[in-house]
Design a protein around this nucleic acid. Structure first.
Lengths: 339, 339
DNA sequence: CTGTTAGCGCCTTCAG
DNA sequence: CTGAAGGCGCTAACAG
């Protein structure tokens, strides 16, 4: 159906477009009769006022900044990044609206990105946890929208911030090794996930590096990957722990998955860390509350730094180099102990 | 500084406005020289293109739905509600943008709301966890923007959805009583928080009801409220557990706070649930993973149902009555046990 | 109370 | 390659 405008409504209702506008804005100066006639016309025509057109004549312009991310509601770690984003935006709340593009899949992601560019409604764009293709970067650049990436390995062709997952994976594994563990399992997402993300692969490579440096043989049966999240991790761990010779430690690629490992251990009557050490990754907030040993990757800070920089780009302030994040840190807590 | 338009830029650069538009949109047909002249003018004038005006001539209209909430990044429970909101929006991602208004304070909240109404850019508004005043409801209604409330006790004057905190508090306490506990403490937020929220008060009233029905005396020293969150809960619990006669159970008003209670117990060498039962509230995701006994209030579903209804209102589809949430449920897990 | 007329700021032909 | 003109859909003054 073609787009219906205020003019169509006026025509259908047999009134002027000014009158239609008045009922739209609940202006007092309209008789009850004409009002209802207009309302009826709006109804039957399915008229939806164009937001941009309404906004145009108003004094205060609509200024919005977009944040595009993979489903943050499914991952605590994304939510923590967003916390930093909001921190950076504090004080700007009456200046910029935050438009959150929560995508569901790569396809969805690409479409949203395209639509953002087409609409050209965003003053700036923060790309959270997503790898843009060369073409996509080029397209955004063409559009003239300032953009910044968060959680991406440093690249020359766009301003981005992130940490090195391979190093992090190595650190986590080294921690376990330093505690005397030799039978260490890896539990994570599929190495290449549907969204083309290689986080799991990177952390796994770090794990391999650490083992190799320590001269520890890597056992294939201690390597399990699958869908992301708590439940798959629990199931995979159950499998691992039923092995004839079970590992004494597990490196889970996220804190949420570490929770799954711990649940599996509990189900089998194994104590953590006495019978099994569990190492997580991310250092989300609950990890501290519960006492999960993990690798801190400064999630919140990453969002904050990224957004601050984007704000600078938008304001065209001297774009000093993008500040880099503090180093990854191993945070030993109560789920890992000496063998 | 007055608003600078494309015309000012054209004037300053000594070119036509069409040319300015072309450089703005990275159109090929501009000589390198004029391009840089224009860019310079843009720079010195600090020109920012008006988003609405840019959008207007394009084919695809900008359609956005606003969600206004208290700082969701600080509360897991809000994040879970948002998950439901997103679920409801799945499949509409190419139709509606989701604009998230994450507020920092009541003042901020009121300002944002005003600005939303003034801009009239939103097709609909979902109000998450915030009590609107009569005037505010009236103002939104005047603006003609469809709106729905989530987490509000049922009211006649606007469509909203929510659960009864008093009943929930009573259920939680009854669970503890049924396990034989008589010395039960309450740990929560200040009864009236800075944002005028009375969630804590309501749950506390439920707690009192349950005690009274059971004929259990309520001890003032078992009542502690303070700032929201893990850390304050931990500190308050530390106090309570050092009492000459410490309670055998604690009802914490949220799962996050329950975590704080558990941490305090651990610090004092008390086992949960053997030495102390801890009851939470919310049933956020990690509660299941960790095994916290709690009251399920269907957070995710609330966001989903609310947004679905809003979508109907926007589409002007038969607004059958707003579906109500399932009843609250006590979910006993591993942090509560018989005395 | 209501129709009409100017723009809102920008994009997009259309001639040069 | 570039300037000028027409319109995007709506609001807001202005006369009735």
């Amino acid at each position: 159906m073609a787009k219906v405008t205020i003019r169509d409504v006026a025509l259908a209702a047999g009134v002027g477009i000014g009158t239609v506008s008045r009922v739209l804005n609940n202006n007092a100066n309209v008789s009850e009769r004409t009002r209802s006639t207009v309302l009826e016309a709006i109804e039957t025509l399915g008229f939806v006022p164009n937001a941009a057109a309404r906004q145009l004549p108003r004094k205060k312009p609509y200024q919005a900044i977009g944040v595009i991310t993979r489903p943050f509601t499914e991952y605590y770690s994304f939510a923590e990044r967003l916390r930093g984003v909001h921190r950076a935006l504090e004080g700007y709340s009456d200046t910029y609206e935050l438009v959150l593009y929560n995508t569901y899949s790569t396809l969805d992601y690409n479409e949203r990105l395209e639509s953002i560019i087409e609409n050209s409604m965003m003053l700036g764009l923060l790309v959270l946890d997503f790898n843009l293709s060369k073409e996509q970067k080029e397209a955004i650049r063409q559009s003239g929208i300032p953009f910044v990436g968060v959680n991406h390995v440093k690249a020359k062709d766009w301003p981005c911030i992130g940490t090195d997952n391979e190093i992090g994976g190595e650190m986590a594994t080294e921690h376990l090794l330093s505690l005397g563990h030799r039978r260490i399992a890896y539990v994570g997402n599929d190495l290449i996930d549907p969204d083309g993300f290689s986080t799991s692969k990177e952390r796994y490579l770090g794990y391999l590096n650490a083992l190799e440096k320590a001269g520890v043989e890597q056992r294939p049966e201690y390597f399990r990957v699958g869908a992301m999240g708590y439940e798959p991790a629990r199931l995979m761990t159950l499998d691992i722990l039923r092995l004839p010779e079970r590992p004494t430690a597990i490196f889970a690629m996220s804190d949420t998955q570490a929770l799954g490992c711990m649940a599996a251990a509990r189900e089998l009557g194994l104590r953590v860390p006495e019978d099994l050490s569990v190492m997580g990754y991310d250092d989300v907030e609950f990890s501290n509350h519960i006492g999960i040993s993990t690798v801190r990757q400064h999630l919140e800070l990453s969002g904050e730094v990224g957004m601050r920089y984007l704000l600078r780009l938008i304001a065209r302030e001297a774009p000093e180099r993008l500040q880099s994040l503090p180093s990854l840190e191993v945070i030993p807590r109560r789920t890992t102990s000496v063998l």
